[in-house]
């Protein structure tokens, strides 16, 4: 896509194709439309929140090609051809993502405004694989501000999922080592950014409904 300068006297809409939560979208956007506004206003995916619009709160966190970023400080045109995962894209049908489930179990939100960003950020954190301790989690989740101060419960929820995944990984390794190789059902619809299906230890939400 090479534009010659002469053609650009009047800023025009530019074709942008984005894969959002596994679905291809071919849009025509003006260059100053942020990825956040694209998701919310053009694709009507309002799960991703606008807190500050200046990179200072993390409410707008989404995953772009598996990495967490602030969608308010990037323009959609710059992400042409990228795979984007938002809070709407992380559950598998009616089965919540383990982090969603853990947030419910740990009461990790009050108003819930920061929650989509917290959860997407936590998925990014898991993908990075750099957080080993609670202190690491705290430091590496510092890009998400919670006005309600639910930090303690948020950190507990993330630590629980980290531990579940570590256990699942050991289980899987032992199963493989013992020769009883189970065919792991890798979901075709699994999205980048979501942990592999075999690592999930999801039980049906019990107390979850009261939070909705």
């Amino acid at each position: 896509m090479k534009n010659s300068v002469q053609n650009l006297q009047l800023p025009e809409s530019i074709p942008v194709s984005l894969n959002v939560n596994g679905q291809q979208h071919n849009l025509s956007l003006q260059p100053w439309v942020s990825l956040l506004d694209t998701l919310r206003e053009h694709l009507h995916l309002t799960g991703t929140k606008k807190g500050c619009d200046h990179g200072q709160c993390g409410a707008c966190t989404v995953l772009v090609d598996g990495k967490r970023i602030n969608s308010c400080l990037t323009m959609a045109v710059m992400k042409e051809g990228s795979e984007i995962v938002t809070i709407e894209g992380i559950a598998h049908g009616d089965t919540l993502h383990p982090l969603q489930q853990a947030f419910i179990e740990h009461d990790a939100f009050q108003c819930g405004y920061c929650t989509p960003g917290q959860i997407c950020s936590a998925i990014g954190l898991m993908n990075e694989g750099k957080a080993n301790t609670l202190d690491d989690v705290k430091e590496l989740m510092s890009g998400n501000i919670c006005r309600c101060g639910a930090y303690t419960h948020i950190n507990e929820a993330i630590m629980q999922v980290k531990e579940q995944e570590a256990e699942a990984a050991i289980l899987l390794k032992n199963t493989e080592a013992s020769g009883l190789h189970e065919v792991s059902e890798r979901d075709e619809t699994s999205v980048p950014g979501a942990p592999a299906r075999e690592a999930e230890l999801v039980t049906e939400a019990e107390g979850g409904a009261s939070h909705e």
Partner: peptide, 9 residues
């Protein structure tokens, strides 16, 4: 510096 999200950008 900054936050993990910002450092990714």
């Amino acid at each position: 510096g900054a936050s993990p999200q910002l450092r990714n950008m």
